[in-house]
């Protein structure tokens, strides 16, 4: 699980072009969206959907579910673990 979290952090940095962020800066339990944590926005949410499909072959069928999945790096890792084929 720890490896997956570290891998996810780097993929998020690369895909969202978070220029001044290192994996160590990302608290896996911190919120990804909003003022706290990484402060991502709605375009980033689309990028995260693509990231899951591109690297893990996982689709999020329900938009409502995405809000829950993308709460934090930890929640994404848990979703990947539960759904990766």
């Amino acid at each position: 699980m720890d490896n997956l979290i570290e891998q996810l952090k780097q993929q998020i940095i690369d895909e969202l072009n978070l220029e001044e962020t290192t994996p160590a800066d990302i608290d896996p339990a911190a919120p990804l969206f909003g003022d706290k944590g990484l402060g991502l926005d709605s375009i980033d949410a689309l990028e995260l959907v693509m990231l899951l499909e591109k690297y893990y072959g996982i689709k999020i069928p329900e938009p409502k579910q995405a809000k829950e999945v993308f709460t934090s790096v930890n929640s994404i890792a848990e979703y990947i673990k539960a759904n990766k084929k």
């Binding site: 072009n17 375009i43 689309l46 990028e47 693509m50 499909e53 591109k54």
Partner: peptide, 13 residues
């Protein structure tokens, strides 16, 4: 590369 799928919205915008 992605067969017209998984297109990056930022690059398009």
């Amino acid at each position: 590369d992605n067969g017209e799928d998984l297109l990056n919205p930022s690059n398009f915008i």
